[in-house]
């Protein structure tokens, strides 16, 4: 069992492996991301923000699924565009949030596709590739499901298979979009421990998540996005401040030390807005907001 307590110090290195410079991206007139400057070093980084903040867009840009409108992304000092598809796939893996499976490949075959960037034209797995696939299956508790058709799995099982595929890619950078969305509490914690181990081994792990309580315990680095802008970045203690959380999530926040997890505990409540209540009272006569339990 790994140490569940995250180290207190900032683990971002001085020369981050993945650097985002003056990055903007937009559909039409509106910018979904504007002027993002961010560096990702070895460690577990959480990318957090309300819906529509541009988190998934940033992840897609980091995986080179889309190209930036302005600015650039550098990986190990080279611009992302300079890599061939195969080179990039050996350095960056992505576990998307939602995957659609059209054909009944087995879980093992799906995970083995993570080895695609290392294989020849005919896709034959070497013993080394097979070991990596087996290890990835084992790490996500899929060994027993290895022979099952992916189309017959539950949402959580399929999500674990996709994460195992990303791990089988054995990359420096692993990007995960809402990896815990279909997992239960124990599975989410196991995944966080696993990602923490990879981070300790020098991997750059970037997680987009809505789960602030997980981030408050496991993140080494944090980045807050709101409406396409970066509003805070740094280690947990730097960004988990009530004023910043309130600005990002439009809710009143309380942050406390948590002895139980060794991380932080965060709780939210709605902002009491006098003007909003008055407004509602005027527009909805008969509905008395003040006398209702909040």
């Amino acid at each position: 069992m790994a140490d569940l307590k995250a180290p207190p110090e900032l683990s971002g290195s001085l020369r981050p492996e993945l650097v985002v410079k003056n990055l903007s991206y937009g559909y039409g007139r509106r910018n979904t991301l504007s002027d993002i400057n961010l560096g990702f070093g070895p460690g577990l980084c959480f990318l957090v923000g309300p819906n529509g903040a541009g988190k998934s867009t940033l992840l897609a840009l980091l995986a080179r699924l889309i190209s930036p409108g302005q600015g650039e992304i550098r990986l190990l000092g080279r611009p992302l565009e300079a890599y061939s598809p195969r080179e990039l796939a050996r350095l960056v893996s992505l576990a998307p949030q939602k995957s659609v499976f059209n054909l009944a490949f087995t879980v093992e075959e799906i995970v083995a596709m993570g080895r695609r960037p290392y294989l020849g034209r005919w896709g034959v797995l070497s013993p080394q590739d097979k070991r990596v696939v087996e290890a990835s299956l084992g790490r996500l508790g899929l060994t027993k499901l290895a022979g099952r058709a992916i189309t017959a799995l539950s949402g959580g099982e399929a999500q674990r298979a996709v994460i195992a595929r990303a791990l089988a890619q054995d990359t420096l950078v692993t990007l995960l979009d809402e990896p815990t969305a279909s997992l239960d509490i124990a599975q989410s914690l196991e995944l966080m421990v696993l990602l923490g181990q990879l981070a300790d081994a020098g991997r750059v792990i970037v997680v987009v998540s809505h789960d602030l309580s997980l981030a408050a315990v496991y993140a080494r680095q944090m980045a807050f996005l709101r409406e396409g802008k970066l509003v805070g970045q740094g280690d947990r203690a730097m960004v988990f401040r009530p004023d910043l959380l309130e600005k990002v999530f439009s809710a009143e926040a309380k942050v406390g030390e948590d002895d139980f997890t060794g991380g932080l505990s965060i709780s939210f409540r709605p902002i009491k807005s006098a003007s909003l209540a008055e407004d509602l009272n005027q527009n909805l006569p008969g509905l008395d907001l003040e006398s209702r339990p909040s």
Binding site: A60, A63, R64, L65, P85, R86, L88, A89, R90, V92, S93, L94, P96, S99, V100, F101, N102, L103, F105, E109, I110, M113, G114, R116, P117, L119, R121, W122, G123, Q169
Partner: peptide
């Protein structure tokens, strides 16, 4: 047949295929 392995990967969706190194 030359692209059969790529075709396998592309059934996961074009985004996934791209992150797995296929010149989609």
């Amino acid at each position: 047949l030359w692209s059969a392995v790529d075709l396998n990967v592309m059934t996961l969706g074009l985004g996934s295929a791209r992150t797995l190194g296929v010149n989609v």
